[in-house]
Write a protein that binds this DNA or RNA. Structure first.
Lengths: 186, 186
DNA sequence: AACCAGATATACAGACCTGTCTAATATACA
DNA sequence: TGTATATTAGACAGGTCTGTATATCTGGTT
């Protein structure tokens, strides 16, 4: 099936980008990993950049959907969802398909603001912040934007931490910090 | 002078790595930016990887020295230094030569644990955490490691934030979060 | 059975990459 | 002035990169 191919390419590219870096992963490597012909890749993605953009979009969508679902099923009120946030993030980081925050990695590898990859990263980063800020607003926090940004920064730092130090105690500290910040923001 | 050449190469490489990414910057570009011959670069740095490692080391050293000096001159007691930390980080981010946290960028571009660049990044990241943890310990914080990690994660998230959204309000939020966390950690 | 769209394998062009070699030039010092 | 040392310019080898072209094969439909 047609969408089957597309999915295989995206999956392979996502894994390779995560393990080796985006710029360090060649098209031939993606093709080999996906077990398809190079022409097929270029049929679905006219240029490597299109593939990069789609991988970032998909990984962000997946995380957003996972998180939204986890919070919806695990908590009723917005306030409880906010308190569940860091537990959910911890669970997500423990899943085997955890792969960092795509927009962070992409923005580091494509630092130029005029790059399409950088622009998309900035958009998705803002979306993520807005999502948490909305959560805080719905939970009745007095200064939702402040808390939203603080929690977002903490999550980004924790994800980086995890990948650098492989020390799972870090996330416990982040959770504790989130509790303190939420309580203080009232 | 000999050390002059070395310094010019490091300066040029640092700027290019920051603006375009590490893997996206070729040796020829560095040579042109530094205004030297390619052979000279390979005399001081036998391989590009040696240059990358030295750039990361130097940028981390510079930041560490700047921060240490700023805290020493701005505050007497360890407790006051801890309170000054985020103001200092804010000042550093406002300096023209601000270039992110080198070990974060490097670890994203070289994600494989067996890579020398990744290993150095992990070391420097741990050093940074230890520095803040020591600050917390000297300030008499009850759980210095917890607070140290929390502040480090917050700083890393704030630095990423700044580079992605260019919104300076983010750092104000981070400062506020740091105050809350320090107060709560007592 | 004949056809056809989609996928495959493979070679290729042209650009760029790292790292080396050589020959010419500049600089410092005796 | 003569000589060692450092730097330069530029070509080059060998490999990898993205993207294209071509020719073959496969599976489903009529």
């Amino acid at each position: 099936m047609a969408s089957d191919m597309r999915e295989r390419i995206l999956t392979a590219a996502s894994r390779l980008f995560q393990n080796n870096g985006i710029n360090a992963t060649g098209v031939d490597t993606i093709v080999a990993e996906a077990g398809i012909a190079k022409m097929t890749l270029y049929k679905y993605f006219p240029a490597k950049e299109d593939l990069i953009l789609e991988v970032i979009r998909q990984r962000s969508r997946e995380f957003g959907a996972w998180l939204g679902n986890r919070l919806d099923t695990g908590a009723r009120t917005p306030a409880k969802k906010l308190q569940l946030l860091f537990d959910a993030v911890e669970e997500w980081m423990a899943t085997p398909q955890f792969s960092g925050l795509a927009f962070i990695e992409a923005s580091v590898e494509f630092p130029q603001p005029e790059s399409a990859v950088n622009q998309l990263s900035a958009e998705l980063s803002a979306e993520f912040r807005d999502y948490i800020t909305d959560l805080a607003r719905q939970a009745g926090i007095r200064a939702p934007e402040a808390l939203g940004m603080q929690l977002a920064m903490l999550i980004e730092g924790a994800v980086l931490s995890q990948q650098l130090s492989k020390n799972s105690a870090d996330l416990e500290y982040a959770k504790q910090a989130a509790r303190v910040l939420i309580k203080s923001a009232g």
